[in-house]
């Protein structure tokens, strides 16, 4: 699935720095291998998200940093949230396209899953996620 398809499927738009008017066509052609959704960044680090689409409701710059560490191809912000300028700038500098949709995480995942974007796979040996009672 290409990034251009994601734009259509979840009716997304790009978040770009003020100095940039439109994304280059090559970004739209970027191929996405898998999808993964989480609002917990440590959990994202447990998945093989390389060349994947990260679907999240988090809008702070750490979202981008986390994505950068695991070689994510693009980030989709759900629930109609607008990221602050520092997040947009960080994404632009890291070369990671930042998209936003009005849809909830459930709907965005549902539509992309139905359009055959496969799920990211957990790394072998990754810890079980949050199982705390502390």
């Amino acid at each position: 699935m290409r990034l251009a398809d994601v734009l259509n499927i979840v009716q997304a738009r790009f978040f770009l720095p003020d100095s940039v008017q439109s994304p280059s066509p090559s970004v739209l052609n970027r191929e996405l291998r898998v999808g993964g959704s989480a609002d917990l960044m440590s959990d994202v680090l447990c998945y093989d998200m390389s060349q994947g689409l990260l679907i999240t409701g988090l809008i702070n710059p750490q979202t981008v940093r986390t994505a950068e560490m695991v070689d994510v191809a693009a980030i989709l912000i759900v629930r109609g949230k607008t990221p602050p300028p520092e997040t947009i700038r960080t994404a632009w500098e890291a070369g990671i396209p930042l998209l936003g949709t009005q849809m909830t995480m459930f709907e965005a995942c549902g539509r992309l899953y139905m359009a055959n974007l496969p799920s990211a796979v957990r790394f072998a040996g990754a810890p079980p996620p949050d199982c705390t009672a502390h």
């Binding site: 993964g36 459930f106 709907e107 995942c109 549902g110 139905m114 957990r122």
Partner: peptide
């Protein structure tokens, strides 16, 4: 054991909505 992405996908596929 499935991740959130897959669970959401399957529920959507079953016709559930927000």
């Amino acid at each position: 054991p499935a991740p959130t992405y897959t669970v959401a996908g399957k529920l959507w596929e079953l016709g559930l909505r927000e």
